[in-house]
Amino acid sequence: MTATATSPGVAAAAAPGTIQGARPPRAGKPKRRWTRTSIWGLLFTLPAALYVLIFHVIPVIYGFVLSFTKYSPLSRSGPEPIGLKNYTTLLSDPDFGNALLVTGRYVLQVLPITVIIALALALLVNRPFRGVGLFRSALYIPHIVSLTAVSMIWLWMYSHNGLINDVFAFFGLPDQSWLLNKGAALNAASAMRIWKALGSNMVLLLAGLQSIPKELYEATRVDGANRWQSFLYVTIPGIRPMLVYVVAMDIIYLAQGFAEIFVLTQGGPLGSTTTVNYLIYTQAFQYNQFGSASAMAFVLFAFIVGFSLLSIRGLMGRQK
């Protein structure tokens, strides 16, 4: 109980010192030793680790093994080992190469826009005022409405006589067949995805903003900093860990973009919206080829992990 009673005061006192450095002993490359605390640390991670090991890691390993086989779930004989053939086939498959490019472009164009708008919205709804809960909810709604249902609305908005062309016509711009045009379809899908992802990004950044002790703002204000400076020197460093999470999460999920493509364009026109995960889905569930679907998944996995680590490095690195 002692700890509970003292915590707020300690938190306030300790916060200014800890926030920027993010604790050097943990951030650097420490030689960790087994201490009483670290053994407890291991124990704390065990329930989650065991669960993830059984229900996530094992299926992933199963999939990895399948990637070296030819396997249809319908077959009675089970997986048939074929070595690296699934991977070598991918190397020479222009459709797969194209899908990787499409996926990359998709991530790169959705991610920054989503994060920037979400951060702006999070800042707007971070202050308490009457009805703030309603605004936060309104901005979160796209994340929770059923994608298949709302995609019918988007399909209609994007259609030739849909809302978006009406808006364009209002401004005297020529109308477009958004989802039928090779140059526009991926952008159209991206717009829907940004719309859908804004809410979750905003909520996370909001939680990040909440973790910034207000005393820091007070301190910078006493030092005579203006709003922009306090944003730059307090807000951004304060939400950096959450920003890292948001960016990594967006990369992981966007790179697996599938559902929005499936409902809007079915990968077309001319393969311009065929993402890797779209190919994986068709390979697995349309053609029953789980071996090559798994191989694609692990190539995608390598890209996601590499790209996420790079961006985490980049975001954390600037701190030093």
Binding site: W156, S159, S177, L179, L180, G268, P269
Partner: peptide, 14 residues
């Protein structure tokens, strides 16, 4: 007009 557009599955009124 509308190469690639899926008119056939559109709602009846569309």
């Amino acid at each position: 007009a509308g190469l690639g557009s899926d008119y056939s599955d559109a709602p009846a009124n569309q």
